[in-house]
Amino acid sequence: MNKKIFFLVCLFSIIIFSCKKDVSYGVDAINTMPPNAQKTKLKSNEQYISILYANLFQKALSANELVEITHCIEAFGDKETIHEVIVSNFMNKPDVIIPSDSIMRADIDIFLTNIYTRFYVRDITEAEKEYLTKFIEVNPAFTAEMLYTAFALSDEYQYY
C-alpha cells in the first residue's frame, strides 16, 4: 500500500515538474492591446476646450474665454453639434495654426505621425497610416484643415 502511494507521488511529481516545451522561441511577450486602449476618461468641457485651443493655436486659452466657451457648451444639448460649431469658429480665426496643404502632401507619413501625436498623444498604427495616406492621395481637394477638424471632432479626442 505504501509502495503504491510512493509510486503515485513520484509519478505526479514527474508530471508536474517535468520540462515544458518553450513556445516563446525567444520572443518577448508583448502587450496586444490597441494603442488607444488606456484612454478611459471623458474630458470635461473645460479640458476639451483648453486642449483643443492649445492644439490649434499653440498657446493657452485665457481663463475668461475658457469660461465663456464652456458656458456655450453647457447651453446646448447636442454636444457633437456644438463642438462642431466651436471648432468651425476656431478655424475662422486668423491666428489658427494649421500646416499648409503642400506641407501635408510633401510628406504624408510625417504629417500623419505628427497629427496623431498632437491630437491623440500616441503613435499612429500601420493600418491607420495606410488608410489615411490613401485617402489624402485620392482626394486632392482634401485639406490639412479638414483633417484637423476631423481629429478635433473625433470620439477618441474626447477621451484621455
Binding site: 488607444n36 478611459t40 454636444k79 473625433s154 477618441e156 474626447q158
Partner: peptide, 12 residues
C-alpha cells in the same frame, strides 16, 4: 477615426 476608436471606447 471613430470606427478605430469604437473597438475600445464609446463616443460622446
Amino acid at each position: 477615426l471613430d470606427n478605430v476608436w469604437g473597438t475600445v471606447g464609446s463616443g460622446l
